[in-house]
Write a protein that binds this DNA or RNA. Structure first.
Length: 879
RNA sequence: GGGCGAUUGGCUCAGUGGUAGAGCGCCUCGUUCACACCGAGGAGGUCACUGGUUCGAACCCAGUAUCGCCCACCA
């Protein structure tokens, strides 16, 4: 991004005003939304040189219902940045994407239409879903009609398309300065092609691989789940003290999962644990099932947990997986992919008693099986005491509601440093190259990368997603040759291996021995969204564009998805391009409800974003959002929106006033040479400081600071400066130079203030701009301080403060006397601190006029060091 | 258990070494000559706590407490 030639107010620009008699915020969203769209105000110019481009990797919102307040909040932050950069002269690449390819979309379609996907069915042309709309509640799974995968995908596309149209309408109403001609869907052919191409290239370089291994599995969704999608939740359970049978008597273990007893492969204690030294190397038999298992030592066993000796099952938790792997234990899986115990009796249960007990468990859920095992243990006398209730932490899929099981399955992985120190270090180093805003968010990246315990699992056993562009040859027995995958060539992507045929085969060979089958899985949603820069930037289709926008400048996102979206994007970029995907990452906080809890969906639905925008106005809601700093969670506060609305209205009214002093057909002068009165020049000096501070803050992604300094100045401008100069500005006949000075200063200040407010209040500022300027304020340049300083000369801003204080003192006299502010003061003496004597003197005429002072105004240096005070004689007091 | 934030008037928050700030709310008053979706004035805080550094601490250091979040934690 290059520094731009800033616009200096051109003294020759004078325009005739068209100020409406009555100003209002109502309807500005529609009016200007339409105008911006028609005029292409935010269209990205692909011809712009690369150094001028500022590219934003916009988060594609998940299409699974409606946008909520948190979206409005964080997307406003991004839009403020986009508008600022655009005004600074950057050509802003600001696309919008829709993430519509994942599990949330599937679930919404199931609930909305009352269907479920059954891949074994064939396509039904013209299928009409049995149900439409949720009526606030979901169709129960039992009532869902099974339909084919193509039918299901058709419905996914239809519903997400409808949702996306609504999303876009909301974003336009909010005033996001997105280039709407650059919209993408993660389920589009192009996005699928990018995802498949990136995968194919990962595979060719050995960065993607397939493995058959135990992994976390959600029994509800029946899919594998990645580490990044885990959520630890409290889960009620109970310790069961269970006796294993050793040569020298019982060995007690404690377990919260007695139903896994038939899957036990060993008992394990810490090598240094004195209590179990004599048992290491011996064999014990399990209760109920009479399976002989070894007692082994492993340092991962914790002596103070439970009985200090653990029952290792395949697989109860990730520690079991570690033991199984490191101690080379057998695999005795009993829990299936549906979360139920295997129907057939496992072959390692050889005694009639064991088989009889298992027969009671077969096909049961883990929950029911647990009850059955506990009952059997009680009967056999192997349960010592009663179960002790406890709360334990269990891993859940973040979107699921049952604890994850661990099952063995064949899955695709991408290397992410979880098993490779060199890669991990390289990715940590990439983190150093990204400027996080706020910077302390970077530790979350470091924590996550440092704590990875495996590669990135990218395959999901779902339907609506990007399929893996891979087929497997079938051997003579019809078994897939997973070691010899047939990978689609980049040139033919996207492909769907369930309908497309690999090179060298015919469709008839699908599923027959000696033929082929397609990989049935789809990619995890993050595997696609980790490629948003590639998708939005035209990596495959428009290399020229891609070279201009990549690496991008900004990744805006929530701090809750640093470990997923941010990290996975860095991984893909590092592997494919050997660089970071963007220079800056802006992390927005969450919206909390007034109870300081994270806004829940149910509460969020009570106040819909569109309802808020309609009620308070988009500028008002944007003001609320822009008042919260990056990284900080903010309260949902209607009060803040009302303040924003008041500010927007004030901008309209103050602008109308500032433009009102000349006759209607008289042009407005922006000539700095006309500004000769010290008070006017002092005001511009103050404004110059504001411009510098606001610019510096926005450059540093601190939009709240920029807004604050601008707003503070603006209220002083309205309350003090405008009041002080209005009589002089009107009095063109009595004091032509003084009036011209005030009018030019007002116009120059207004011009600058509108630009400063434009990123936060795009509608009100554009409205005012249209009254007296040409073009859009959003394509006008960002103001710079140099011309203001030149116009201000050596006048100190303190003059405005001193005159303002003097005016406030006069007002206070009237306020305390409980009379109108228009009451005439017959004479007054100002008591001012010595330091202000000179500066107040420079604006005395304006102070007199604004204070309605008709007689003498004396200035004395106060004896005590106090703010400005006044002794005054009021008209009424003398009457 | 490790880490990161936060703690300032009733509320929401600014304020990184020099006599406590804003807005909202509250109180008093005013106003239709830009603005009632208004204006002016006012009251209100020992800056979570304890030590320390310093001429001087809301701010720097050490510790404590409470709250929130991130990571780890399934025997």
């Amino acid at each position: 991004m290059s520094p731009l030639t800033p616009p200096s107010p051109d003294p020759s620009i004078t325009t005739t005003r068209r100020v409406p008699d009555k100003v209002s915020l109502d309807g500005l969203e529609d009016r200007w939304g339409t105008a911006w769209s028609e005029q292409g105000t935010y269209t990205f110019d692909a011809q712009a040189p690369a150094e001028q481009v500022y590219a934003i990797d916009t988060p594609p919102p998940t299409v699974s219902g409606s946008l909520h307040l948190g979206h409005v909040f964080s997307y406003t932050h991004t839009d403020v940045v986009a508008r600022f950069r655009r005004m600074r002269g950057a050509e802003v690449f600001y696309p919008m994407g829709w993430d519509d390819n994942g599990l949330p979309t599937e679930r919404r379609v199931q609930n909305y239409y009352g269907v479920r996907c059954d891949p074994s069915l064939t396509y039904t042309p013209g299928f009409v879903p049995p149900h439409e709309g949720t009526d606030g509640k979901a169709v129960k799974p039992g009532d869902q009609v099974p339909i084919s995968r193509p039918n299901f995908i058709e419905l996914c596309l239809r519903l997400s398309g409808e949702d996306e149209a609504q999303f876009e309408a909301l974003w336009r109403h909010l005033g996001l300065s997105v280039d709407w001609s650059r919209t993408y869907r993660t389920i589009s052919d192009e996005a699928r092609a990018v995802a498949q191409q990136a995968f194919v290239r990962n595979l060719a370089r050995g960065e993607a691989y397939q493995a058959l291994a135990p992994g976390l599995w959600d029994v509800t969704f029946q899919t594998a789940v990645a580490q990044a999608e885990l959520e630890a939740r409290d889960y009620p359970g109970a310790y069961h003290r269970v006796a294993f049978h050793g040569a020298d008597g019982p060995v007690f273990i404690e377990t919260t999962r007695p139903e896994l007893l038939p899957a036990c492969v060993a008992l394990i204690a810490h090598p240094d644990d004195e209590r179990y030294q004599h048992l290491f190397g011996t064999t014990v038999t399990s209760p109920l099932f009479d399976v002989a298992v070894p007692v082994l030592a492993h340092p991962a066993a914790e002596p103070d947990k439970g009985a200090g000796i653990a029952m290792c099952c395949t697989f109860g938790d990730l520690t079991d997986v570690q033991w199984w792997r490191e101690l080379q234990l057998p695999n005795r899986t009993v829990v299936g992919r549906d979360g139920r115990l295997e129907r057939s009796t496992p072959d390692w249960l050889t005694t009639p008693g064991a088989q009889a007990v298992y027969a009671e468990l077969a096909g049961k859920t883990t929950f029911s099986a647990r009850e059955a095992v506990v009952a059997a243990l009680r009967t056999s006398g192997d349960l010592d005491g009663e179960p002790t209730p406890t709360t334990r932490k269990a891993n859940f899929y973040e979107k699921g509601d049952k604890p994850l099981e661990i099952v063995s399955s064949r899955q695709w992985y991408i290397r992410n440093g979880g098993r490779d120190g060199a890669l991990r270090d390289a990715l940590l180093a990439r983190g150093e190259q990204i400027a996080f805003h706020p910077d302390y968010m970077k530790v979350r990246y470091d924590n996550w990368v440092g704590g990875l315990n495996g590669d990135w699992l990218i395959s999901r056993q779902r339907f609506f997603g990007v399929p893996f562009p891979v087929w497997y040859p079938l051997d003579e027995n019809g078994e897939p040759r997973y070691d010899a995958p047939l990978v689609a060539d980049e040139s033919i992507l996207p492909v769907d291996p369930s309908s497309d045929v690999p090179v060298g085969y015919t469709a008839e060979q699908r599923g027959v021995p000696g033929g082929f089958i397609g990989d049935p899985d789809v990619m995890d949603t993050w595997a696609t969204s980790s490629l948003t820069p590639q998708i939005a930037g035209g990596w495959r289709t428009d290399p020229e564009l891609f070279a201009k926008v990549f690496p991008m400048d900004l990744r805006p996102q929530g701090h809750d998805i640093i470990r997923t979206w941010l990290f996975s994007t860095v991984v893909r970029s590092h592997l494919e391009f050997g660089q970071v995907p963007w220079s800056d990452a802006a992390l927005s906080g969450w919206i909390l409800d007034p109870d300081r809890k994270k806004m829940s969906k149910s509460k969020g639905n009570v106040v819909t974003p569109m309802g808020l925008l309609t009620e308070h106005g988009s500028d008002a809601v944007r003001y609320w959002a822009a008042s919260a700093r990056l990284g900080t969670d903010a309260a949902f506060e209607v009060g803040q929106m009302k303040i924003g609305r008041r500010l927007a209205i004030k901008v309209l009214n103050a602008s109308k006033f500032a433009l009102s002093f000349a006759a209607d057909d008289e042009p407005v002068s922006l000539d700095p040479a006309a500004v000769v009165v010290p008070l006017d020049r002092a005001m511009l000096a103050g404004l110059a400081d504001v411009v510098d501070k606001a610019t510096e803050a926005l450059e540093a992604y601190d939009h709240t600071r920029a807004l604050e300094v601008t707003e503070t100045f603006f209220w002083t401008f309205c309350d003090d400066y405008l009041e002080l100069v209005k009589d002089r500005a009107y009095a063109a006949d009595a004091d032509p130079a003084g009036a011209a000075s005030a009018r030019a200063a007002l116009a120059i200040a207004l011009d600058v203030l509108l630009r400063l407010f434009a990123p936060v209040l795009p509608f009100a500022t554009e409205e005012v701009w249209s009254w007296w300027r040409t073009g859009s304020v959003h394509r006008a340049g960002w103001p710079t301080s140099a011309p203001l300083r030149a116009a201000a000369g050596d006048a100190p801003f303190a003059v405005v403060g001193a005159a303002g204080s003097a005016l406030a003192a006069l007002r206070k006299v009237k306020s305390e006397a409980k009379v109108s502010m228009r009451t005439v003061i017959l004479s007054a003496t100002l008591q001012v601190p010595e330091a202000l004597e000179q500066t107040v003197g420079l604006a005395l005429a304006d102070v007199r006029a604004a204070g309605r002072l008709q007689g003498d105004l004396a200035v004395q240096v106060a004896e005590v060091d106090v703010p400005v005070a006044v002794d005054a004689v009021l008209e009424q007091a003398s009457a």
